[in-house]
Design a protein around this nucleic acid. Structure first.
Lengths: 226, 226
DNA sequence: TTTGCATTGTTATTTAATTAACAGATAGAA
DNA sequence: TTCTATCTGTTAATTAAATAACAATGCAAA
């Protein structure tokens, strides 16, 4: 395996795609396939074959000329790059619909990422096991996170509590935060933060749908003018 | 207002940020603020003030030198750009945890985007109103979407049904699709597609958390060697 | 054997996005 | 009034990402 430093410099977009490639490859593996071509992967991911080959070049993986890439090997290599050896534990703060949806996403997959705890303030939820994950009292976050050695926190609380939740996670010694609320938060530099806002994505789709409509309107007007 | 063509060429990333700026601005407005500086917006969004000013330049908005940008005006302008005049109707296919979570996100916000219908195959859900949205029978999708003039579909079904759901949406005449399942789908060119995979985001966080740990390990080793 | 074809791997080019640099403006202090 | 500090708006430069171009390879068919 290549030096760690090599992987440190991988483009952010490549990291994202590696995760996606692996997901696609796992499905192919289930279908008894052993090898795959760059253009097949590309088709699935809606990108170009060149992009795929370039990404694989960056991680130093070589395919065979007539058979393409060995699916099993490639899955394993991607795992070596993006997974942690011992696995990483994740906590979900906010066991509402979104929190539980995320747990379901992970169920049944043998990931190196394990959802080790949930937290909520609702007494009806505390102490219950929901979708296989124990829901702890929000107030016990510090203790549980340090005892269980949880490194990543996912924030799925109502947005007005986003910032206070983040602070509590940081105090608890978390290393990375994924904020799913539409409210941006601030964390110290030593905590890796990723924010994902579902409303932005939907508004983006709406914008391009609108553009598309205007475009076809113009086409109609253009034809009429002829 | 500028010509539509101006907005057609806005960078994709700028579109995303405009949506985010507006969200932040709406919160500022609630706090009785009337004006805001580029560096304040930048701070909230974790970007640079230059980026903010550049985006606003692209949409042709000017602030005042000592007071910054008029929040109300800017919100309205962003609306003119990214919203549709009449609003756009959205359907959610899959009224599980994720579907319901999305509905909650939108509740109480006066958006131009309206979630006009939900669809599911579960007889227990069909006919019920969930979080204010009626859940229709999956089989009636074609009729409802055309009757209600719904233009965007959000896919939150289990991933093995992602592709068949997409096909049904396309047949129903949908213009844009947002796929929240981890399984990539294919749609015709005239349908705008955005895919968002939560697992990728989480794996990305995990990767950079891992890198961070290795880095501090190296620091420790480096210090020990001295 | 030789030719043609499809594929990989890599470098070069192009495009998109971000950041830097700086002129212009104006309120407020000196 | 003049100077200073602090913003905005815009062009230039840089960086990141994607795409294009193409040599190299090796199987399959002629």
């Amino acid at each position: 395996m290549k030096a760690l430093d090599t992987f440190r410099q991988l483009p952010h977009k490549t990291i994202e795609r590696l995760s996606q490639y692996r997901r696609a490859l796992l499905i192919c593996l289930e279908n008894e396939k052993t090898h795959i071509f760059s253009h097949e992967i590309a088709k699935i991911q809606h990108i170009t074959p060149v992009q795929v080959r370039r990404d694989l070049m960056l991680i130093g993986y070589s395919g065979t000329l007539r058979k393409g890439y060995n699916i099993r090997e490639l899955i394993d290599l991607i795992g070596e790059i993006i997974d942690s050896d011992k696995g990483i534990k994740v906590a979900i703060v906010g066991m509402g619909n979104l929190g539980r949806a995320l747990i379901n996403y992970f169920k049944g997959r043998r990931h190196k990422l394990v959802i080790a705890a949930g937290f909520d303030t609702n007494p009806d939820k505390i102490g219950k096991t929901m979708n296989g994950v124990i829901c702890y009292n929000y107030e016990e976050m510090g203790r549980i996170i340090s005892e269980e050695d949880i490194e990543i926190g996912i924030i799925t609380v109502p947005s007005k509590y986003a910032m206070s939740t983040a602070e509590k996670l940081v105090e608890s010694g978390i290393k990375g935060i994924l904020n799913y609320t539409p409210k941006p938060i601030n964390v110290p530099d030593n905590v890796y933060l990723e924010e994902y806002d579902m409303i932005t994505t939907l508004e983006k789709v709406a914008f391009y749908v609108k553009l598309g409509k205007e475009e076809s309107d113009e086409r109609v007007r253009g034809q009429a003018a002829r």
